[in-house]
Amino acid sequence: MRTLAILLLESEPVVALDLKGELTRMGFAVHQAFRLSEAIEICQNLLPDIAFINFRQNQLTDGMSIARLLRVQYQMKVLLVTGARTRDLEAAGDFYAGQEVLNKPFTRRQFRQAMTTLLKK
């Protein structure tokens, strides 16, 4: 069985380090990016199967837009970590539709559950 590759776009280094270890233990090939440009480069060159995104640069390039880009452009399954309120996400309409979301701050159990759900999709 092929090892699934995951793009980990997490702008917070401590959290990224923690999650990288967790994901590795879960059996993923983790490709880590701190910046958007790095993430895109990884997507173009390595074609990961899954993406974990916890990224907030500004209003224009928020996590939701990046998640949609990866889903549509690279056919990836995306787990989006967000601090946004549920009603604000719902207001995003199409961008939010079908998006797997993990609310911050999440527990380890919630993280694992979200990954399991995503893989089943």
Partner: peptide
């Protein structure tokens, strides 16, 4: 989240 990760690490 960082605190949780720190303790976990």
């Amino acid at each position: 989240q960082v605190l949780s990760s720190l303790l976990h690490l």
